[in-house]
Design a protein around this nucleic acid. Structure first.
Lengths: 193, 193
DNA sequence: CGAAACGTTGACCGTTTTCAATTACAGTGG
DNA sequence: CCACTGTAATTGAAAACGGTCAACGTTTCG
């Protein structure tokens, strides 16, 4: 998106710090590998994890509109991040009006994605939640889900333990609501509402 | 944000439709009152709720970058919405580069908010989750939460039944971790980590 | 070739959801 | 001004469900 930026890479060991809450806002980041935990420290001394950014995700985008980081960024495991200096982004957006729109578009799609994920969590039943997730991630007719990562990994996204996921998968297959193959899940099309 | 837009208001009765999936993208909306449910219809005939927009929220922002609505918008209860015609927004952003930045800023703050809400759902314990929510919504020192809506309402945000919330409140108060007053909750500052 | 991560299943336990019932109000119409 | 109705706030009890712990076969990768 911001091609001309001077991208600097940085490797981090577990618990190593990317930035601290209160540090001057200098860059937006992309996680190349690993996991970065964003932790907000509150007035009463307690702290809350605001987000865990995983490979491929950007984080601290809000820093574009702030002077300081609002939370700590800490490597959850050995990780690698790419820094995109804030001035570079701002300059690009000032020079090219389309760049701002591009950013807005990116953020809008994230908002949509996050909202649907949040809504997914409102489905209490493990099986129904998993099924809803699969429907959202299926393609084709009949709908098929292609798994590009492990269930163990996916389970965190869905908000269930991996055990719960496997049990739900087994139950759904038992009931004929899905068909499992190698790295693939086929969804049965049910009649009715 | 987009002051000059021709804002049209529209009242909806329960189940009345704002727009349908596939309709040409004409406007972004703001919920003035009530609740609008965004439902996505999938290829296999099933449907999934993507989001429930509540008073004060905007919805269908993504329509700025699409030609059609990607889901249905249906009034969950009697509601009132304000339409902001898409051309108005696009024109404003073309005319004023700061407007695009403003939009990006708005979206970035939503992303941050949504991420923290999602992270909140990863806290399994009802009491801890509620406490985390209160900490994030507290102000002042000692931290105090001012309730601007009913617990019944808030419980949906937190992702617990209202009964679970009341029980968690009772337990936290019993343990001296919070103090309840009229429309107010005081958080106890604990030492340690 | 091992160690680590993934996949899978069983059993048990703790928690939350559900269902129910009760109290406390706030607003409404008579 | 009051009975009346609907929502919010609570609390109890039982049931359902997912989390946790445990065990084990399998795959992956250095």
């Amino acid at each position: 998106m911001v091609e001309s930026a001077r991208l600097r890479r940085r490797s981090l060991r577990q618990t190593e710090i990317v930035f601290l809450q209160g540090d001057p806002a200098t860059a937006v980041y992309v996680v190349a590998a690993g996991r970065i935990r964003l932790v907000r420290h509150l007035a009463d001394g307690s702290s809350v994890t605001m987000h865990v950014a995983r490979a491929g995700e950007t984080f601290a985008e809000a820093v574009l509109f702030a002077d300081f980081y609002h939370c700590d960024g800490i490597a959850d495991v050995g990780s690698e991040v790419v820094m995109i200096p804030k001035p570079d982004i701002l300059r690009a957006m000032a020079a090219d009006p389309a760049a701002s729109l591009g950013l807005a578009r990116l953020l809008a799609s994230q908002v949509r994605d996050l909202r649907s994920r949040l809504e997914l969590r409102n489905v209490r039943s493990a099986s129904e939640r998993l099924l809803a997730w699969m429907r959202l991630n299926a393609a084709g007719n009949p709908p098929i889900v292609r798994l590009d990562r492990s269930w163990t990994d996916i389970s965190a996204d869905i908000g269930l333990t991996r055990e719960a996921i496997y049990r739900a998968l087994a139950a759904l297959e038992r009931d004929g609501r899905i068909t499992r193959g190698d790295g693939i899940v086929g969804l049965s099309v049910m009649g009715g509402v």
